[in-house]
Design a protein around this nucleic acid. Structure first.
Length: 491
RNA sequence: GUCCCCAUCGUCUAGCGGCCUAGGACGUCGCCCUUUCAAGGCGAAGAUCGCGGGUUCGAUUCCCGCUGGGGGCACCA
């Protein structure tokens, strides 16, 4: 029974995949995976004005990057295609014909102006119902046909049964939802240009694709009763609905561009890990047990249930995402971090050739080891290790730690101590051990000595640990950096 | 205007009538570690569970009203 589950994510290619959409996709995917169901990707491109091929590709790439693999859809195919609404015109047409035959749809010749006027009048009167007044509903069929034949523009509307009872459905996250039938007017199914409306196309597709659970944004909750009416008219099995609350910006308003980065690819480009983003987004409105926060995507794909989805809208908190991304980085092995993050980042920054890992694997692994706990996003890796490739003195750091009385003596003492170390024992432990004696001998606070040396070696008063950094730099380079800094120091 | 949805620390949340002197996580603030920055360890502050009525021996949990947010009401999705 559980293997019968079929869910879909149906984005409109009117823009990039944004965080809200991504979360919806994650929930659908995780739900399908957890229950051994089928995850379908469908492109709802019925809006020719705003839909673009580029956006479609963009969305597919974001889905792939997030690791949300789909079983049916673009690039995959499937038995229920096509998976682009623009290619499904014949299905909508056929469904409309069935409705007309059943007397469940009728043509309406009202113009947009007439409808607007009627709506305005209803508002004037203070009517509670301001929808379509069913002007054309009872038109003589012969007259209607004559006007159609004469080429008069018309739309097709759903003929909601006269005495339809209230529409009641059980939403998986909201519980029982009830809408009085009188609130629902005879919605437009097909526009005068022959294209289907969203609420119609969606139902035809969901019905024909055998969707069992519709997991989507809260903004569709009010559309649901309308859609149910269409499901009924078409004789499709009505799926279970699960409406997700919205993702808000820090000001409590719906998340939008003015809150900063909102698309998946922006986060990818800023160096976030896909798994961390999926983990974070999944937790924005869903919880495993209320205690666990780090849940790997493959674990989410094994334990996702609809009953643990929260009803409240959630504020997107980038700080927490940043923290989580750091957690994912820090939990990688040195080797994985080196190959997946460090080397690519250094190559991108132009410090090393792209294929240099194998030549100095141990060196990169070692660097990764001290880098990992200090990174929140990928870019930090190159930024925090650039001093190894390109020494740049930070003015404030030099002024505060190097351009001070006595520093020349500190550096020389360090130099002399390190110089005598054999090349074969140039390890962080040896370096640290040897250096330990310097401030003691000089009788000065170790902080003064080490911060001066740190700036000499790394160019900045904040850096990776000194010993390991010098080991990575090598004896020759480390010593020459001390000499190089000599002019900056003082007696 | 009307219909609908939502309401627990600054933020994400646990809670599905007594286990709650409301738990976890991010963030914040201390302390420890320490030659910097992180990471890690320990700890603290932070929520009269939006407000007011009920129901009940007992409400964060159930019901009603209010308030505050949000969404729909299109030949947009």
């Amino acid at each position: 029974m559980s293997d019968q589950i079929r869910v879909r994510f149906a984005p409109s290619p009117t823009g990039r995949l944004h965080l809200g959409g991504a979360r919806t996709a994650i929930y659908n995917w995780a739900f399908a995976r957890t229950h051994g169901g089928t995850f379908i990707l469908r492109i709802d491109d019925t809006d020719p004005e705003r839909s673009t091929e580029e956006n479609t590709q963009q969305i597919l790439r974001s889905m792939e990057w997030l690791g949300l693999d789909w079983d049916e859809g673009p690039q995959k195919g499937g038995d229920f295609g096509p998976y682009f609404q623009t290619q499904r015109a014949s299905h909508y047409q056929a469904a409309l014909e069935r409705l007309i035959e059943k007397g469940a749809a009728y043509p309406c010749f009202c113009t947009a102006e007439e409808l607007e006027a009627s709506r305005a009048a209803a508002r004037e009167r203070g009517d509670s119902f301001q929808g379509y007044q069913r002007t054309c509903r009872n038109m003589d069929p012969a007259e209607a046909q004559a006007r159609i034949d004469a080429g008069e523009p018309h739309v097709w509307r759903l003929k909601v049964p006269e005495d339809h009872p209230a529409v009641v459905f059980e939403d998986a996250v909201h519980g029982t939802c009830r809408f009085e039938a009188k609130e629902l007017d005879d919605m437009v199914l097909v526009r005068s240009d022959g294209t289907p409306t969203y609420n119609y196309a969606t139902v035809v597709d969901d019905g024909e694709m055998g969707i069992t659970h519709v997991i989507r944004g809260d903004d569709h909750l009010s559309n649901t009763p309308r859609q149910i009416l269409v499901f009924e008219a078409l004789g499709y099995k009505i799926p279970t609905f699960a409406h997700l609350s919205m993702i808000l910006g820090s000001d409590g308003k719906k998340l939008s561009k003015r809150h900063g980065a909102t698309s998946v690819e922006e986060y990818r480009d800023r160096g976030f890990l896909n798994d961390a983003l999926v983990n974070y987004l999944a937790l924005l409105g869903w919880s495993l047990d209320g205690e666990t926060t780090i849940i790997h995507p493959d674990q989410i794909a094994q334990s996702f249930t609809l009953d643990r989805i929260s009803k409240n809208p959630a504020v997107f908190d980038e700080e927490k995402l940043l923290w989580m991304d750091g957690e994912y980085m820090n939990s990688m092995s040195d080797q994985e971090f080196a190959q997946r993050i460090l080397v690519p980042q250094l190559a991108e920054a132009g410090f090393i050739p792209p294929e240099s890992y194998s030549q100095r694997a141990a060196w990169y692994d070692q660097l990764s080891n001290i880098l990992k706990p200090r990174c929140r996003v990928m870019g930090d890796a190159a930024e925090k290790s650039r001093f190894l490739f390109d020494l740049v003195y930070d003015e404030p750091s030099v002024n505060k730690n190097l351009a001070k009385e006595g520093t020349r003596g500190y550096l020389r003492a360090c130099y002399e101590t390190l110089e005598v170390l054999g090349d074969d024992i140039w390890t962080a432990e040896d370096i640290d051990a040897a250096l330990e004696e310097v401030p003691v001998k000089l009788g000065v606070p170790k902080k003064k000595v080490f911060q001066a040396l740190r700036v000499a070696e790394c160019g900045h008063q904040v850096s990776l640990p000194l010993g390991p950094s010098m080991e990575l730099l090598g004896k020759r380079e480390s010593l020459s950096r001390i000499e190089l800094a000599d002019p900056l120091a003082q007696d």
